[in-house]
């Protein structure tokens, strides 16, 4: 008999508890159990990156993680990127650079790109392409996605950007170029 497991985690900065079957993926947990549908399913086998979320300091395909595995960990999804002060600079850049067409891959690209720039704000085009190779986009040909990440990287502080710095830099939602 398989019963649901009680899991305590920190989701987008807030303590969160939920009950899941041990066989439910983190993706299913986020979408069906918790109700955060911003994280998308594209393949359910780790080959498209649409379900990318951050667990502690690493990005993962949430379809390849069990919900029970995030006990005691910090999970960040696309819903956790913006703050009450405004959008994350990458969200703003994706809007300004027209980096999305259908938008289904966008949450995964944003979470993955943020993780890269948090580590390596000055990542060059090749490094950005290398880092994002696990995220498929079928609409844009990637050009405008890469440019948006480059743009945010170019305007970031050379040192590793802290969360506080990133928040301070954010422009209000809807701000224009």
């Amino acid at each position: 008999m398989v019963e649901k497991v009680h899991v305590r985690t920190t989701l987008n900065g807030e303590p969160t508890e939920f009950l899941v079957y041990p066989y439910q993926s983190l993706l299913e947990t986020l979408r069906e159990v918790i109700g955060l549908t911003g994280t998308k399913e594209g393949c359910n086998d780790g080959n498209c990156g649409a379900c990318t979320v951050q667990v502690d300091d690493r990005i993962v395909d949430s379809c390849l993680v069990l919900g029970v595995e995030v006990e005691g960990k910090k999970v960040t999804t696309v819903e956790g990127l913006a703050t009450p002060a405004g959008l994350h600079p990458l969200q703003q850049a994706f809007l300004e650079e027209a980096s999305l067409q259908c938008g289904i891959c966008t949450p995964g690209f944003l979470v993955a790109s943020k993780a890269l720039l948090d580590r390596e704000p000055k990542a060059d085009e090749h490094r950005i392409r290398h880092w994002l190779a696990g995220n498929l986009c079928r609409c844009t040909g990637y050009d405008k996605i890469i440019r948006a990440v480059q743009k945010v990287g170019a305007t970031s502080k050379p040192a590793r950007a802290t969360a506080a710095q990133a928040t301070a830099k954010r422009r209000p939602a809807g701000a224009r170029k």
Partner: peptide, 21 residues
Amino acid sequence: TRPIRHDGLDKVTGRAIYGAD
């Protein structure tokens, strides 16, 4: 001109409701 698309905000914040949602 190149205005920000009207549905953009929902799509970069995960709020947009797609078929599976």
